[in-house]
C-alpha cells in the first residue's frame, strides 16, 4: 500500500543545508491505522508532506498504491492527491462563508463530473461521516459546531474514496473531550476498512492508533504495534 525506502529530504537555504529526514523506510498495509509521532523538529511534518504527495523526497523511493511518486511532476502530484489521498487538516480548514456542500465538493471542482453527480457524492459522503441532517448542508461552514465541522472535513476527505486518509494534527486546536470524539471517529473509519495515517506530537492521541511509528532527528526511533 504505502512503501517508503530510505527516504531522505534535505532543505537547502543558501549555504546551509538541513537534513530533515535521513533515511526512513517502512511499509503500511491496507486497513492499518498508523500514528506517526515525534516532537517538533523530528521530521514528522516533512514525512507527512512526502506521504501526502505535497512534496517529493530528495532521495529514496515512495510508492503509494503501487505508484512510484518520487519523480512525479507537479500536476501529476495534484492528480494523485485528488484521487488517492484524503486530507484532514489541523483545525479542519473549511472555507468560510461557503456552504457545507461546496466545502465537501471542493476536490471535485474543475472535474468532468456533472453538478448533480457531485451533489450525490457529497451527500453520500456526509451521511457516511455521520452528518445526517440534510438541513445543515446548505449552511455556511462557520455556522457549524466543532463536532459538525470535523465531520464535514472528514466527508471532504472521503469524497473521492481515497486509498489513504492523512490526518495532520487533527486534534491540534481542540480540547481533550472533542479530541477524543474526533479520534473515535477515526477509529470508526478504520473499522470500516479505511487506511489512516495520523501525524501527531501527543502520545495520548497516538495511542488511539493500532501502530505507532516514533520519529526523532529524521530517523525512525521505534515502530510498535498497539494491541
Amino acid at each position: 500500500m504505502i512503501e517508503c525506502k530510505n527516504i531522505c529530504k534535505t532543505y537547502v537555504n543558501g549555504d546551509v543545508s538541513t537534513q530533515a529526514v535521513r533515511g526512513i523506510s517502512f511499509k503500511i498495509e491496507k486497513g492499518e491505522f498508523v500514528a506517526i509521532i515525534g516532537p517538533s523538529g523530528s521530521g514528522k511534518s516533512t514525512l507527512m508532506h512526502i506521504l501526502g504527495a505535497l512534496d517529493t523526497p530528495t532521495s529514496g523511493q515512495y510508492s503509494l498504491d503501487g505508484k512510484e511518486i518520487s519523480k512525479m511532476s507537479e500536476d501529476e502530484l495534484s492528480d494523485l492527491r485528488r484521487e488517492k489521498i484524503g486530507f484532514v487538516f489541523q483545525a479542519f480548514n473549511l472555507l468560510p462563508r461557503t456552504t457545507v456542500m461546496r466545502n465537501v465538493m471542493l476536490p471535485l471542482l474543475f472535474s468532468e463530473l456533472p453538478m448533480k453527480k457531485r451533489e450525490e457524492m457529497a451527500k453520500k459522503s456526509l451521511k457516511y461521516s455521520g452528518l445526517d441532517d440534510e438541513k445543515l448542508y446548505n449552511n455556511f461552514s462557520n455556522q457549524l459546531s466543532g463536532g459538525q465541522i470535523q465531520r464535514v472535513a472528514i466527508a471532504r476527505a472521503l469524497i473521492n474514496d481515497p486509498a489513504i486518509i492523512l490526518a495532520d494534527e487533527p486534534t491540534g486546536n481542540l480540547d481533550t473531550k472533542t479530541s477524543h470524539i474526533v479520534m473515535n471517529a477515526f477509529q470508526e473509519l478504520n473499522r470500516n476498512g479505511h487506511t489512516i495515517v495520523l501525524i501527531t506530537h501527543e502520545p495520548e492521541i497516538a495511542n488511539f492508533a493500532k501502530r505507532i511509528i516514533s520519529v526523532r532527528d529524521g530517523v525512525i526511533e521505534k515502530d510498535t504495534r498497539n494491541i
Binding site: 500536476d75 495534484s78 492527491r81 485528488r82 471542493l106 476536490p107 471542482l109
Partner: peptide
C-alpha cells in the same frame, strides 16, 4: 493564501 493552499492540497491543478 490558506484557501489557495487548501485547494492545491486537495488536488486542484495549478492551471485551474
Amino acid at each position: 493564501t490558506r484557501e489557495i493552499g487548501l485547494r492545491k492540497a486537495v488536488g486542484i491543478r495549478k492551471i485551474y
